[in-house]
Design a protein around this nucleic acid. Structure first.
Lengths: 193, 193
DNA sequence: ACCCTAGGGGAACGACCGTTTTCCGTCAAT
DNA sequence: ATTGACGGAAAACGGTCGTTCCCCTAGGGT
């Protein structure tokens, strides 16, 4: 019954969409709340009604991004055959991500470096990395590798390294190098079985 | 002839020291120029006479940190025996760094995520990573490894991954995992020779 | 003895920040 | 039909930002 922009629960979504695009693309502190409300076509009051403060909006933005990014990666990985191919699929997915126009590194790494005193944001960042590590541990175990835990730790370093390199050096092909390094490690851990 | 704080060329150094401590520890945008001049016990006018703007100070801070950090790593590496031990010494050095009280990740990664529009800062970050990559290429070649270039690329990912992990997850032992991964890769590249 | 320059102390500037507030329109439920 | 909660538009708040300016002190070169 509602016209497209009436009485909407979508106000929150519009705010989060704008916040994600701006915070991720320019850095959190470079973006004022006015920028966000203008981009979301929303009143300032609404932002504060929904999130309480800019810090609250930042935290909500990070939580939603964590959820979405992990879901996206899990979906990409699930498209590959179980076992080693799924490990390599992680780096194929990274390669796609690095090539996207707005790519600006890992949102959580960026926040950890920028918002040193924002405890909630740093906690979300830590949890995000733990979730990523858990996914890699699962994939490593599913290869039947010897020392799957160690393999997962090593894959984690490669993933993080590829993201940082693609970002700072502007080199999307870091994904390919990560993939080949992962393949080498898969072989090491398979041989040791 | 000069008393400790007269007519000093050390004014610039004091400014850079304060800038580095504050910018690195809290993030660039969280630190005002007033904070820097207060910490350096210097007049605001002096900062602008020396660096022209806050952006100029940021750039100078990054350049000096690049120089110092690379010199520090090269010195640590040179203490080890030539060949593979020098590759592993990189990760030992990282381990020391991660354990230092003020450790807050890689200054250049942080800046790349925070100062998206600061072209000069991002250029210094890129150059810093290239210098690091060049050092690793040298070390990889000196091991006599097959595909030394590929080995260097892989080591680079491990180094970056270890730094990010130690930072975001607050886990200094990422250095040990990086070291063991590097050792595995060294074996792979030695066996293929 | 003379500036000239570097630096310190501190006020002042205009812009922008995050946040609160006021006023008004409008749907949903009573 | 009235109320109340939600949302938009915009002003206003106090604080902080980067930057500039003024005045003062003190060496050093001429």
């Amino acid at each position: 019954m509602s016209p497209p922009d009436a009485r909407d629960p979508q106000v929150r979504t519009r705010l989060l969409d704008a916040a994600e695009r701006l915070f991720y693309g320019r850095g959190v502190r470079s973006v004022g709340v006015d920028d966000v409300v203008a981009a979301a076509r929303v009143a300032t009051k609404t932002l504060y009604a929904q999130f309480g403060s800019k810090d609250g909006l930042v935290e909500a933005y990070l939580r939603r991004r964590d959820q979405r990014w992990m879901d996206w990666l899990r979906a990409r990985v699930a498209e590959a055959e179980p076992g080693s191919p799924r490990v390599l699929a992680v780096f194929d997915a990274l390669g796609e991500w690095f090539g996207e126009p707005g790519f600006n590194g890992c949102a959580f790494v960026n926040v950890a470096g920028e918002l040193v005193t924002h405890a909630a944001a740093r906690a979300v960042a830590r949890d995000h990395k733990r979730a990523l590590r858990a996914l890699l541990a699962q994939l490593a175990a599913d290869t039947g590798a010897a020392d799957a835990g160690v393999l997962a730790d090593r894959l984690m370093l490669l993933v993080e390294g590829a993201i940082v390199t693609a970002h700072v050096e502007g080199d999307p092909e870091a994904a390919l190098r990560g993939r080949s390094a992962a393949a080498a490690l898969l072989q090491v851990h398979a041989a040791a079985a």
